[in-house]
Design a protein around this nucleic acid. Structure first.
Length: 429
RNA sequence: GGAAGGGUGGCGGAGCGGUCUAUCGCGCCGGUCUUGAAAACCGGAGUCCCGCAAGGGACCGGGGGUUCGAAUCCCUCCCCUUCCGCCA
């Protein structure tokens, strides 16, 4: 959420920012008009309340003297109904204002390139060289099913299309990767581990910016105000919702969680395999930092995510998103994309974003600066990293001519010493 | 799911119709003293909104009501704690 004062004082800059995202900016003018009306009414009703407070106090004093105050009481009763009417109008304007301001996206950071959609995205660096294959590399679905570690047919029997089912060493690989990533962030990157709820209510979803815009992309329980989280960003960022953080910043939190997404707008895209699924595992990193430091913190957050990929020896590139491709709440974002040689495509496994004070304002997350003044923190988060696509890259990169898959050395200790998955036929341990 | 008790400033905790301008304690900030710190003493400070300012208004879990006037009385919803039931 943007500061209303900022919109009031720089409407042109706000309009520019929204247009850079490729969205219509007419809401800004409505907002400015509503805000002006609200302040006029507010000034008026506050004047009347001051009068009521003063006179009511006098009435009390005069009654003690035994005076007749019925005339004054009648006048105040009338004033009271005027106040009630004005209060109702102010509240109405407040609600409309809130409904409008909550759907205005964050302003793109000045360093984010401008251009429609994905057109302005740029590769800022890349790591590793794609492996040369002496045979035609297979896709992860074929590999996984042949190895008996991925069973999409049975998954759909349980839950319908779009759900992963890992079996045997596939399930173990999933668990090993989660542990590997959490250990890395906790032991070497100074994050504190959190194991959060995967159902969150509307205030939390609004706090991080999933609501109201993404309501149709999320699963919701039928009888309660609870949603299945699309990312651990939601519960972990809301850790400090409506709080003034009393401990020193920055604070780094990391969490594994399962994530749920309807992918409603993605019908027909990536339907085969586990590249786009309704449920997936992810390790998330979240930062709460002082405003002046958030740019640098985004760089180190991104390096933390890259570290996962480098230790696994996977080829990747870092893309800086243009304004047109930024998510609703982000001011700046780097995507990490893994090379998948079977699919011959780059797969997004992490989005590292700086939200500046946009989420903090919605969620009421504040701190005291050096002068003791209460201010909004800046929040950041990034995947560190998302699992299904990571598994895709590991399978496709590690595949051998005989159909087996060699695992990255870094994960072998987490696999109990197993460094290779070979086809065995049937259910195997 | 049932019963009881609670939600007050960063924390603890008073207040139960009008000097509430929300007592007090802890913690916090500044100062005195000290080589430095602690202690002691003195002083300061809740959050949000409107206003150039002076100042004004709102906020005692949320919403509604009663009243000239509500932290205080009434209704309602939410949350927390304890006990019972069920349960991984």
């Amino acid at each position: 959420m943007l500061d209303m004062k900022r919109i009031r004082e720089n409407p042109d800059a706000i309009r520019e920012g929204i247009k850079a995202r490729g969205q219509p900016a007419d809401l800004v003018d409505e907002l400015v008009a509503f805000d002006r009306d609200r302040r006029t009414l507010l000034t008026e009703v506050e004047r009347l309340k001051n009068e009521r407070n003063t006179v009511s106090l006098e009435i009390g004093a005069r009654k003690k003297q035994g005076e007749d105050t019925s005339a004054a009481q009648a006048a105040m009763r009338q004033l009271g109904s005027r106040i009630a009417a004005l209060d109702a109008r102010v509240r109405d304007l407040d609600e409309q204002l809130q409904a409008k301001i909550i759907v205005i996206p964050n302003m793109p950071h000045s360093s984010a390139p401008v251009g429609p959609g994905e057109s302005a995205n740029v590769t800022v660096r890349s790591w590793g060289a794609p492996r040369e294959f002496e045979f035609e590399p297979k896709g992860h679905t074929e590999l996984g099913e042949a190895l008996g570690i991925l069973d999409l047919a049975r998954a759909s029997k349980m839950s319908g299309a779009g759900f992963p089912l890992f079996v045997g060493l596939g399930a173990r690989l999933e668990r090993a990767l989660i542990n590997f990533m959490l250990d890395l962030h906790v032991r070497e990157h100074d994050y504190i581990e959190v194991w959060p709820p995967v159902l969150c209510h509307s205030p939390s979803m609004t706090g991080t910016g999933q609501l109201p815009k993404l309501a149709t992309d999320m699963y919701r329980l039928a009888d309660e105000d609870l949603w299945l989280i699309p990312t651990a960003e939601v519960p972990v960022t809301n850790y400090f919702r409506d709080e003034i953080i009393e401990q020193p910043l920055p604070i780094y939190l990391t969490a594994y969680s399962v994530c749920f997404r309807k992918e409603a707008g993605a019908a027909g895209r990536e339907t085969r395999g586990i590249i786009r699924v309704h449920q997936f595992d992810k390790v998330e990193m979240v930062k709460f930092v002082e405003p002046g430091t958030s740019c640098d913190e985004l760089e180190s957050l991104t390096r933390n995510a890259e570290d996962v990929l480098q230790r696994l020896g996977l080829v990747y590139r870092v893309r800086m998103l243009g304004a047109g491709d930024l998510s609703f709440a982000a001011a700046k974002c780097y995507d990490l994309e893994l090379w998948a040689p079977g699919k011959k495509a780059w797969l997004e496994v992490s989005s590292c974003s700086n939200f500046e004070d946009f989420q903090a304002r919605r969620a009421g997350i504040r701190f005291r600066d050096k002068k003791g003044k209460v201010r909004f923190v800046h929040t950041l988060n990034g995947s560190g990293v998302a699992l299904p696509r990571l598994v895709v890259a590991i399978l496709e990169n590690g595949q051998q001519a005989d159909g087996s898959v060699t695992l990255p050395p870094a994960i072998v200790p987490y696999m109990g010493g197993i460094d290779r998955i070979a086809p065995a036929g049937g259910l195997i341990r």
